[in-house]
């Protein structure tokens, strides 16, 4: 996966600020049906789960697109060329993350374009639950001799760090 928006689930409050401001930034209207990020919620168990494009390097949405309307740009970001799109919906079905949405008015796919690198969802998120990954990388040095338990802990904690936009590199 390339540069993409990552989510710290423990911080997401489910306010959907990302959704409305994504919609406004791209479509100039406030809505949750025109956004490229969606929070799936369950009010019984307090679930708030933002779904957003992972910017796969081998993007399935791109490979199933019959007309070449979807492509990966030189910056690694998946883009749509509307002129070529036939609105077949194959990309919606193919995305393993469910991160391709359908414009309810014209049927074109809605996919995150990272707002040119300053993703408005990340900028607006009130709880710091969203980050633009990889924000940064941290190196840990000389940990080989610290034992199996340390390694295990590092692997698990590294997953958490990734949700904060930090990747651990063992050197």
């Amino acid at each position: 996966m390339g540069l993409h928006v990552v989510v710290d689930l423990s911080k997401c409050s489910g306010c959907r600020y990302c959704e409305v401001w994504c919609s406004f930034t791209h479509e100039k209207v406030f809505s949750t049906s025109f956004s490229r990020i969606r929070v799936i919620k369950d009010d019984v168990i307090g679930m708030d789960f933002p779904i957003v494009c992972q910017q796969c390097v081998q993007a399935v949405c791109v490979s199933v697109c019959p007309t070449g309307a979807l492509y990966v740009g030189s910056d690694g970001v998946v883009r749509l060329e509307r002129m070529k799109c036939v609105r077949c919906g194959k990309c919606l079905d193919a995305c393993p993350y469910g991160a391709v949405f359908k414009d309810p008015v014209n049927g074109f796919p809605l996919i995150c374009d990272l707002c040119g690198g300053r993703a408005v969802c990340v900028m607006k998120c009130p709880t710091n639950a969203l980050s633009l990954y990889p924000l940064t990388e941290v190196e840990v040095v000389g940990v080989e001799g610290l034992g199996r338990r340390y390694e295990l802990a590092l692997t698990e904690f590294g997953k958490l760090l990734e949700r904060w936009g930090v990747r651990v590199r063992v050197k």
Binding site: G14, C15, V20, P126
Partner: peptide
């Protein structure tokens, strides 16, 4: 408390799970 929640479009997530 384990997590905060908010109303729609709210920047003060004052509800708690």
């Amino acid at each position: 408390n384990v997590k905060n929640r908010a109303c729609f479009s709210c920047v003060v997530p004052c509800s708690r799970v």
